[in-house]
């Protein structure tokens, strides 16, 4: 029981991350009807910007060795990462996607792949130093360099319970709570923006029919920009939280990032792409499938097969889920089938 509860803690934390990234995919798809392939790279950017900023702040504070960093760093870095990624998202939309507003969707898709490649590979250039440790050794660079780095821990950690305890405890780290709370705050904020404000109404109008919305006096370009920026900021927040939870960050063109972005996209599809609530639902569902898949495979199949790959196949479960959803309900759980006009 405790084992399952422990899994649920991970599901909630990781599900929040997926949901945050999926929101960006789904919002852009809702408005421009294309998959923003570069979205997952914005998420990666968010994670790496958080790492560099944290390292810079901590080294500037010159903390006494062994002391934990002050708590205010975390929200500060979060906001800074969101701002940086928001700006990058704005630039991407203006420079790469806006010239293609009237182009076939295939071209936009190719451009998105181009932007994705660009972000990945610029991100792992050998950068110039922005922070050095006491010995004068470079510890953070911009861009981020071709090798993995470690995010400093910004939140206190609960010590793991004694494994020999008769009744095993469920361990909830502060980082899990932080992720869940801030994800919920951001998602509620987004719900408010989309469904309760005038600007949200404009977004929904553009999503429904761009031309008509333009004729009604909505400034479509501005709506699209804001949508991109919002999506990028949510991705940045997810990136920051990911870096807190899994501090060993791979270089930006590493395969693990692609799979993470892919899973978030699957979340958006499963929930119903274009549907904001669906993305949140999908995020948690995908995390659930992923962790339950690992648990069940390791527990029941690995002993039979004499293997030890239950956890290594975590992405496979999610992908199987995607195929299943595409076969059974192609529009996703909360999505509606689109009709093409003839």
């Amino acid at each position: 029981m405790a084992e399952l509860l422990q899994i649920m803690v991970a599901v909630v934390a990781v599900g929040s991350l997926y949901a945050l990234i999926a929101l960006g995919y789904t919002m852009v798809y809702g408005i421009l009807k294309f998959i923003n392939f570069a979205h997952s790279d914005v998420f990666v950017l968010g994670a790496w910007v958080s790492l560099v900023l944290s390292v810079m702040i901590i080294s500037a504070l010159k903390l006494a060795p062994g002391s934990s960093p002050p708590l205010w760093i975390a929200p500060l870095v979060l906001i800074a990462a969101m701002v940086v990624c928001g700006l990058v998202g704005f630039a991407i939309e203006r420079l790469a996607y806006k010239p293609l507003r009237k182009a076939p969707r295939l071209n936009v898709l190719i451009t998105a792949i181009g932007v994705s490649l660009l972000l990945q590979n610029v991100g792992q250039l050998t950068g110039f130093a922005v922070a050095k440790d006491d010995d004068g050794k470079t510890i953070a660079t911009v861009p981020f360099g071709p090798s993995p780095k470690r995010m400093p821990s910004l939140l206190p950690e609960t010590a793991a319970p004694d494994p020999n305890l008769a009744k095993p405890l469920v361990l909830i780290q502060p980082v899990d709570v932080f992720i869940f709370v801030s994800a919920i705050v951001l998602m509620v904020g987004l719900q408010y923006l989309v469904f309760r404000t005038k600007f949200g109404a404009a977004m929904r109008a553009v999503s429904f029919n761009t031309e008509t919305a333009a004729l009604m006096g909505i400034r479509v370009d501005r709506v699209i920009s804001v949508t991109f920026v919002t999506g990028a900021m949510l991705a940045a927040a997810a990136g920051f939280m990911y870096a807190l939870k899994y501090p060993g960050l791979n270089q930006t063109a590493h395969e693990t990032w692609v799979l993470l972005g892919l899973k978030a996209f699957v979340a958006a599809v499963v929930g119903g792409i274009g549907n904001v609530r669906g993305a949140v639902l999908g995020g948690f569902l995908i995390a659930f499938i992923e962790f339950m898949g690992m648990y069940c495979f390791s527990k029941y199949l690995d002993p039979v097969l004499h293997t030890n790959m239950g956890t290594n196949l975590r992405d496979v479960y999610v992908f199987a889920m995607l195929i299943f959803v595409l076969l059974v309900r192609p529009a996703g759980i909360l999505g509606s089938q689109l009709k093409e006009k003839v």
Binding site: I35, R105, L259, N312, V316, L322, I323, L326
Partner: peptide, 28 residues
Amino acid sequence: LPSLRLRGDYLAIVTLGFGEITRVLLTQ
């Protein structure tokens, strides 16, 4: 078969997934 019945973008994502999953499976 499942992805080509749907709109174009799904194929992109399913094939990307297929490639990555193949990679993961081959490591096992």
